[in-house]
Amino acid sequence: MYSEIVMDHFRNPRNVGRIENADGVGQVGNPKCGDIMKIYLKINKDEIIEDVKFETFGCGSAIASSSIATEMIKGKSIHEAVGLSNKAVVEALGGLPPVKIHCSVLAEQAVKSALYDYAQKNNKVIKGLENYKPEDDEIHCQH
C-alpha cells in the first residue's frame, strides 16, 4: 500500500517534537477529519530555517508527509521553503495512494501556515504568501 520511503519516514520520523519559543508555528487539520499537523520553525537573522520540528495526529502517510516536509525545508531560506508544494512532497515520498494525497496537501499548508505566522510576527512579507489567509487552509475532511 505504501512505498518504502513512506514506511521509512513513518517508522523513523525525522524532526519530531516541538520548539520552545519558535519563530513560526503553523497548525492545520482537525481531529474530526482524523489528522492534525503542527510545524514549529526556528528562523535566523538571515531568514534561514535553522531548525524545524513537527507534531502530527494522523495516519501513516500524514506522519510520513510531515516528516519528509521538515527535511525538505530544513536549512532552506524562508523564500525557498514557501515554494514547497504538495506535489514535491508526494514525489519525494515515492508516491502516495490517491486517498492519501490530502496528507501531502496538509504538509504543504502546515509549512505555509508556520511561515505566515513568522511573517506576521516580524512584519515581513514573504513572496507567495501575500494573499495567504490561514482560514483558507481549513480542510473539510477532503480525501
Binding site: Q27, P31, I36, M37, E55, T56, F57, I63
Partner: peptide, 8 residues
C-alpha cells in the same frame, strides 16, 4: 510512541 508526536 504515537502520543509523543501527537499535537492533541
Amino acid at each position: 510512541k504515537l502520543r509523543a508526536m501527537s499535537p492533541i
